[in-house]
Amino acid sequence: MPIEVRKLSHIYNEDTTLQMAALNEISTSIQDGEMLALIGETGSGKSTFVQHLNALLLPTSGELQIDDRIIRANEKATQLKSLRKKVGLVFQFPEYQLFEETILKDIAFGPKNFGVSEEEANQLAAKYIQVVGLDLSYLEKSPFECSGGEKRRIAIAGILAMDPDILVFDEPTAGLDPKGAKDMMELFRELNQKYHKTIILVSHDMEHVMNYCDRVIVLNKGKILKDCSVKEFFKESDLLYQLNIDPPSILKLKDALRAKGFQIDDDALTLESVAACIKKEVRS
């Protein structure tokens, strides 16, 4: 289910003194099975953009197409529900959307809203609680007894149970400890590779972007500033500094070594490949 975005603009509080253009004629396309990172400073329009993908916000001008569904500006959008089923949007701190008595009911809530029978919804809950790495014994617990990290997994299971083709995560690792964050990223990789979901990740964490994503879109003041592969994006730290992004440690190491006269490949983005370059230099 590819996404096509054509000259999409969004203006908040149009025609008032608070008018603010959050997105300015954005055009891009996202293919099936991509694992895409959306980055940019606070206020760059990332959140506004992702909220268009499941029609929580509608374009002020321009249009976007998801599968064969076109959403245009100034057109009363109907049947948004079917779109919301296709594009699962996980907000920042999703643990705050839990509300049911039991985890089973909470995960089944989404599918039921989209017309799935109770029985089937319960089966989906049982399936997805395991996908997010928790066991079946959780289903009868109250979500409010769980730890912060577990709550977040449960909330994500609630979105996965809707079986969307596209998953959007807004800063999913914020506030987690390093182990929790890593497990979360591994889960997304699995969803992408094993379940063939398109993943759109809004993130500030460059280590995650570098290690898990294929493509990077940089938003700046409502415009696309850069749209390229992860490899190209992390080739040089200069670009990152220009964008006011703190480069991942590996780039800092490469820079420090180059300053000492070492030859390190631009493409070397893993410790393994950088170490191989060092080895070559040291042994020669």
Partner: peptide, 18 residues
């Protein structure tokens, strides 16, 4: 817990025989 990045790099270098 996480370990410092430099230590991870040291581990990788050792693995490659340095």
């Amino acid at each position: 817990l996480d370990i410092p990045f430099a230590l991870k790099a040291v581990n990788e270098l050792k693995k490659q025989g340095i």
